[in-house]
Amino acid sequence: MPPVAPVRRTAARMAALLVAMLTLGLVTAPVSPASATPPTGRLAAAPGDDDEGGTPALRAKLDAASKGWLEAKAALNRSVTRQKQLNERLVTIDAELTERNAKVGEIAEVAYRTGRMGTAAALLGSTSPEGFMDRAAALETVAAHEDRTLRELITTRDEAIRTRTALDGEVREQRKQVTVMAKRKEQAEQALEEANNRPSASSGSGSSGSGIRGTSTANAKPAKRNSDGSWPAESCSVNDPTPASGCITPRTLHALQQAKAAGFTRYVSCHRPSGSGEHPKGRACDFAAQKSGFGGVASGGDRTYGNNLAAYFVRNADPLAVLYVIWFKQIWLPSSGWKSYSGGNGDPSSDHTNHVHLSVY
């Protein structure tokens, strides 16, 4: 058996030789089929275990506020849809009510004009058994028709009352959800103000960012929703196709695939096993701005790429269930738009100046 020390020295020399060859570009690292791997010489790993900026408490508040806002918005949309259906039904009911009121009015008018005689008088006026039976049958038919007409009128009136009551309930529901959305918006903006060490000027005012100007006009295919328009609960249940490996949620995978289909194919890292943000839950991805991975502060075409990617996620926030987007010291919230987002460690990763962070519901 050969000595152990020479074997170790040989392995060390081989490793050093390989690093030198990689540095000189004499060999290349294998490319992941799911996501482009950055060339050597730049950081190819994820930007950090906990790079979303701010504190765990801040991220928890933003997560709760954005989720609450999206849920209230979905409830509002459902109520608006029900209100539209009820209004359409009420138009039909009112038309039926007008027609049935007219029929009952005709019956009442005939009875008044002819001096409606009682059933006994009508039967006693018969001159033969056959006539008696004919009159009895005719009276039964008239009575049945009048009874049905009156019942239809009453039923239609009751339905109209129920429909109007349901409409009033939808209006109350919409006011409730609008109030919830406003409250969630205020919660998110106050959390950001506290994190940015800026006093709140007024309730829900927030600290506005300058906004991210991108030119992407691509439309994403919507992620799957429940039949009522809400988002189904999802766990970290599908394989992360990025070099980060691990797991992500089906909606996160959908957003990743849609971004790639729109032409945003630079390096991406999604799942991370540690940290307090969305990455360990499989609900977030970091999209590098530079072709070579997570490097320094993006500039020129790299910053344009980041601007366009951020604009793409904002444009498709509803179909992709976007909770928030972070890019270049700013955060986009569905309730508030772009806001200043400080609280990082001052480096390109925590300031999000080298990658776009996406969190989905």
Rank of each mutant, 00 (worst) to 15 (best):
residue 335 S to A: 12
residue 353 T to Q: 12
residue 105 G to M: 10
residue 86 L to C: 04
residue 315 R to W: 04
residue 17 L to S: 14
residue 167 L to M: 10
residue 191 A to K: 01
residue 1 M to C: 13
residue 297 V to M: 01
residue 12 A to I: 15
residue 174 Q to D: 07
residue 185 K to I: 01
residue 100 R to D: 06
residue 283 R to V: 09
residue 119 T to A: 14
residue 245 S to T: 14
residue 101 N to Q: 06
residue 175 R to T: 15
residue 331 I to R: 03
residue 11 A to S: 13
residue 254 H to R: 00
residue 338 W to I: 10
residue 235 S to A: 14
residue 327 W to D: 09
residue 38 P to C: 05
residue 262 A to V: 10
residue 160 A to I: 09
residue 246 G to Y: 03
residue 144 A to K: 11
residue 199 P to H: 08
residue 122 A to E: 02
residue 64 A to L: 06
residue 280 P to R: 10
residue 254 H to Q: 03
residue 247 C to L: 00
residue 252 T to P: 06
residue 261 A to M: 01
residue 317 A to M: 07
residue 215 T to V: 06
residue 67 K to E: 13
residue 266 R to D: 09
residue 105 G to E: 04
residue 247 C to V: 12
residue 145 H to M: 12
residue 50 D to K: 03
residue 315 R to D: 04
residue 352 H to Y: 01
residue 5 A to Y: 10
residue 179 T to V: 08
residue 274 S to W: 04
residue 104 V to H: 12
residue 308 N to K: 03
residue 211 G to E: 02
residue 209 G to S: 11
residue 38 P to L: 10
residue 240 D to K: 08
residue 237 S to H: 01
residue 45 A to M: 04
residue 40 T to S: 09
residue 81 T to V: 05
residue 11 A to M: 14
residue 277 G to W: 09
residue 78 R to T: 08
residue 98 T to Y: 00
residue 125 G to W: 05
residue 220 A to M: 06
residue 334 P to Y: 10
residue 221 K to V: 15
residue 349 S to N: 12
residue 70 L to R: 06
residue 191 A to P: 06
residue 271 H to T: 04
residue 210 S to T: 15
residue 248 I to H: 11
residue 283 R to F: 05
residue 230 S to I: 03
residue 336 S to F: 07
residue 66 S to A: 15
residue 281 K to M: 03
residue 316 N to L: 03
residue 305 Y to W: 09
residue 159 E to W: 07
residue 241 P to F: 08
residue 219 N to S: 13
residue 202 S to T: 15
residue 145 H to T: 15
residue 290 Q to A: 14
residue 239 N to V: 13
residue 1 M to A: 15
residue 358 L to A: 02
residue 238 V to N: 00
residue 95 A to P: 08
residue 175 R to I: 13
residue 217 T to R: 05
residue 20 A to E: 15
residue 245 S to V: 05
residue 3 P to D: 15
residue 114 T to K: 01
residue 40 T to G: 14
residue 156 T to W: 00
residue 288 A to C: 05
residue 242 T to P: 09
residue 255 A to P: 11
residue 143 A to N: 13
residue 188 A to P: 02
residue 323 L to D: 11
residue 81 T to A: 14
residue 43 L to D: 06
residue 64 A to Q: 12
residue 303 R to F: 09
residue 178 V to A: 14
residue 53 G to C: 11
residue 151 R to D: 14
residue 126 S to Q: 02
residue 246 G to A: 11
residue 313 F to Y: 08
residue 285 C to A: 06
